[in-house]
Design a protein around this nucleic acid. Structure first.
Lengths: 137, 137
DNA sequence: TAGATCACTTGCAAAATGCAAGTAGTGAAT
DNA sequence: ATTCACTACTTGCATTTTGCAAGTGATCTA
């Protein structure tokens, strides 16, 4: 795995993160894996608010190259692959948690998927440590 | 201020956040205001890793419409404006802090602007509460 | 009152995105 | 053994967004 994505490299830690997941879809893919337990291409395609298939393929490749996730053959089904977050990917749990808390506070129109916001607000640390451990929050 | 940006509206709290700041530049603008204390168009233009002027203008408008920041005339200088984060914008401090902590852990090549990472690692809560209060971390 | 500042806007090329359709390698059923 | 379906993509092309360079207009400054 090689670090790429250095298009905007500046040494700033915020910019480093954005260089990897600072686009419309990457964090949604990570969310689907971390929070919803999505593991296959098909699940991710259905999960991410209508991401198109070419963009999903591109993001998966890019996130794999950045060490956020890994791809393995499904031993149960030869035509399918299993995507899973690496520790580097699971370490983004606090970011997901804080965005959810921020939205819970500021999105007055929110209604769907409040489950995660609720869990985070009730027990932020517990949610984060479950994601760290590779479990569902 | 009207809530727009509902292009991808799904009700998910993560998607709500990404809808507002899920692009290459918005969080960098917010970072420059929250962490570096940037207040004018010119400072933001110089601060954000080479953002182009049309994109900066666009983002400032969009972030203002989303209630993240506000724009006021500079009473000292009639040709200049003062941009400042609203509480909604300052509430993103934990997100910035966690991205910085994540990068500190995973970006082995990092060197510039480690000051913020160091501060966050030493005293995350202090950094966040100073940003909440509108101070520099 | 001429020149510099500041905050943009405009025009155009280049890149990223979105959509629809197609492909390749299994697996399952006949 | 062959057809059909499933899974994970790839490809082509139109649309949208971005990036760069240059230009505009309203202050301030000398």
């Amino acid at each position: 795995m090689t670090e790429k994505h250095n298009k905007y490299q500046s040494g700033c830690p915020i910019a480093y993160g954005l260089d990897i997941f600072g686009d419309r879809w990457s964090l949604l893919v990570i969310r689907d894996m971390a929070i919803k337990g999505a593991r296959s291409y098909g699940e991710l395609l259905k999960g991410s608010e209508g991401i198109s298939t070419n963009i999903l393929a591109q993001r998966l490749k890019s996130l794999e190259e950045s060490g956020i996730l890994q791809k393995a053959k499904d031993p149960q089904n030869g035509r399918s692959f299993i995507y899973s977050l690496t520790q580097k990917g699971r370490d983004l749990a606090p970011v997901l948690a804080d965005i959810a808390m921020w939205s819970a506070k500021h999105n007055k129109a929110g209604h769907a998927m409040t489950g995660f916001s609720d869990k985070v607000q009730a027990d932020r640390e517990g949610v984060i440590s479950r994601i760290y451990a590779g479990e569902l929050p």
